[in-house]
Amino acid sequence: MKKIVLTASLLAMSFGMAHADPIADRQALMKDMGRAVGSVAKIAKGEQPFDAAAVKAAFATMAADAKKLDADTLFPDGTQTGGDTEASPKIWEDRPGFKTLIAKYQTDTAAAVAEDPQDLAAFQAQFRTVTANCGSCHQNYRVKK
């Protein structure tokens, strides 16, 4: 009985993996990061009071998503075209540069979580660092439709 359950589980998992959609996966990840940034953007602009819990949660989400940001998995060869993607061909033309920006984003989001800013000035400094990564990547590796 255990073998049947295990076999069925493995088949179900492999079926799900066989139908993975890197374009949809990366878009979902980008949207989640965007929501995290947006959730604290008004705080960064001084339009809302500083909220340490909201800041911590946003940075935690960004850092968790950054760990999932893998160029080879989310931007494999063959996903340059097709589907509704804003990924620039530069991603595949300059793979090392793209991976370097991903690594920097991962490092900076982890540092923001570790710092755990407890006041507006500290948060704004970390937020600028983290979101500068977003801007650099989007300017170089995104085609706005």
Results as ranks from 00 to 15, higher is better:
residue 1 M to F: 11
residue 4 I to L: 14
residue 5 V to C: 09
residue 7 T to G: 06
residue 7 T to P: 01
residue 8 A to H: 08
residue 9 S to V: 14
residue 10 L to F: 11
residue 12 A to W: 11
residue 16 G to S: 15
residue 17 M to N: 12
residue 17 M to P: 02
residue 21 D to G: 06
residue 22 P to N: 10
residue 22 P to M: 11
residue 25 D to H: 04
residue 26 R to N: 02
residue 27 Q to W: 08
residue 29 L to C: 07
residue 30 M to P: 09
residue 34 G to C: 07
residue 40 V to L: 05
residue 40 V to M: 03
residue 42 K to W: 10
residue 46 G to V: 04
residue 48 Q to D: 13
residue 50 F to R: 01
residue 51 D to T: 12
residue 52 A to S: 12
residue 52 A to T: 06
residue 52 A to G: 09
residue 53 A to H: 13
residue 56 K to H: 10
residue 56 K to E: 00
residue 58 A to V: 05
residue 60 A to E: 08
residue 60 A to W: 09
residue 61 T to V: 13
residue 62 M to P: 09
residue 63 A to E: 01
residue 63 A to G: 04
residue 66 A to Q: 03
residue 66 A to M: 07
residue 68 K to M: 15
residue 68 K to E: 14
residue 69 L to Q: 02
residue 71 A to T: 04
residue 73 T to V: 15
residue 73 T to D: 09
residue 74 L to V: 06
residue 74 L to C: 05
residue 80 Q to D: 10
residue 80 Q to P: 00
residue 80 Q to G: 05
residue 84 D to L: 04
residue 84 D to T: 06
residue 84 D to P: 07
residue 85 T to G: 04
residue 89 P to F: 11
residue 91 I to P: 01
residue 91 I to E: 02
residue 91 I to D: 00
residue 93 E to H: 14
residue 95 R to C: 06
residue 95 R to A: 08
residue 98 F to L: 10
residue 101 L to V: 07
residue 103 A to F: 09
residue 104 K to M: 07
residue 108 D to I: 04
residue 114 A to R: 01
residue 116 D to A: 15
residue 116 D to Y: 03
residue 118 Q to A: 15
residue 120 L to E: 10
residue 120 L to W: 15
residue 121 A to S: 13
residue 125 A to V: 14
residue 128 R to E: 15
residue 128 R to M: 14
residue 129 T to C: 08
residue 130 V to N: 00
residue 131 T to N: 06
residue 133 N to M: 05
residue 133 N to E: 03
residue 133 N to L: 05
residue 135 G to N: 13
residue 138 H to D: 03
residue 139 Q to R: 12
residue 139 Q to G: 10
residue 139 Q to V: 08
residue 143 V to Y: 04
residue 145 K to Y: 05
residue 145 K to Q: 11
